[in-house]
Design a protein around this nucleic acid. Sequence first.
DNA 1: GTCCGCATGTAACTTGTTACATGATTTA
DNA 2: TAAATCATGTAACAAGTTACATGCGGAC
Lengths: 187, 187
Amino acid sequence: MALEHAILVSLAERPGTGYEIGQQFQRSIGYFWSATHQQIYRTLKKLHADGLVTYESIAQDGRPDKKVYTVSAAGRELLADWANSPTPVMPLRSDLGVKLRAAEFGDLAAMIGELKAHRDALQEQLSLYERFDADYYPEPDALTGRKLHQYLVLRGGIKAAATNIEWIDEVIVGLQRELDDQSQPPG
Amino acid sequence: MALEHAILVSLAERPGTGYEIGQQFQRSIGYFWSATHQQIYRTLKKLHADGLVTYESIAQDGRPDKKVYTVSAAGRELLADWANSPTPVMPLRSDLGVKLRAAEFGDLAAMIGELKAHRDALQEQLSLYERFDADYYPEPDALTGRKLHQYLVLRGGIKAAATNIEWIDEVIVGLQRELDDQSQPPG
DNA sequence: GTCCGCATGTAACTTGTTACATGATTTA
DNA sequence: TAAATCATGTAACAAGTTACATGCGGAC
């Protein structure tokens, strides 16, 4: 359900094309939700069929028309209702968690390499988020409204990435010890 | 892809029925992956069609037959290959993150209530995990193999839940301040 | 006598992924 | 001249959700 809502949020903040929404999913909203352009176009079509958005086709020279979408009154109402109604707690999902349980059937050294690659990718993400944090939100206590909410979402992204890195480091230490014990069993 | 692998991991650790796998998804593996029984039965059927598992039908009195599944040699090979090959880094997903961005279109007080409900649910989950941690893994440094991996997965669940709670608390503080400012604007 | 646990399944639907397709403009 | 950006889409498939269906045994 959340993709529909994520798109409505994005359009309610400012009208735009499917393409532009796709860009946003790479950044701000993307800290917490992602979608491919196919999903976005498909969902926009459905939102339009349901009367939750309207669009205006804009001709461009040398490019296909673009459709600038705007949230309708019904769309805003749905968004408000959703914001005020409870959402179920989402279960965790982690490929690495499953994979770790499969480690005994594979190769420990390979698993450690994989973990390091993930840690590096997460570290890069974290650095990016921290740069946003420093650049755009130097005085968090003064924030209100949309800016505050965006900041808090960013904080969530930072915390999630940092914790994930910590966990991966813990796993690497554990598996490394196991690997060392295997090559030099305690006598 | 990971559901297939999660089921293979579970069956490789010990053979069992679809029902039993469903139970496991409520606990250990469930810290990091979840599935409904329909998904499990469907996937088992597919794994069987692909020759990755075999099963033995066992008649029971007063109950439908149960099928005890076992991983085949091909299944073990696939599992090992998967364990040794890279997985892409998963993007985050959080309904609450999206919802927070919708807060400006709804009611702040309702949002805070919702956050508190999530915090309570997460706190309960965390307590459960911490009890498992204390009960089953009193001496983590002595663990090896499967037990170690299970412990590390549990640690991930604990860290993720704890961080999430921290984040929610931070969001509640922020939104509460905003709400207070609204009722008593600074003069 | 009603709910819970065991045990499996079909069907319909929604969501998410991957591949393919078009086509001009700008940048390297 | 090759790639990236803007801009939209179809089609096929895989994964996840929700509803419905069956039926016994034991606990409350």
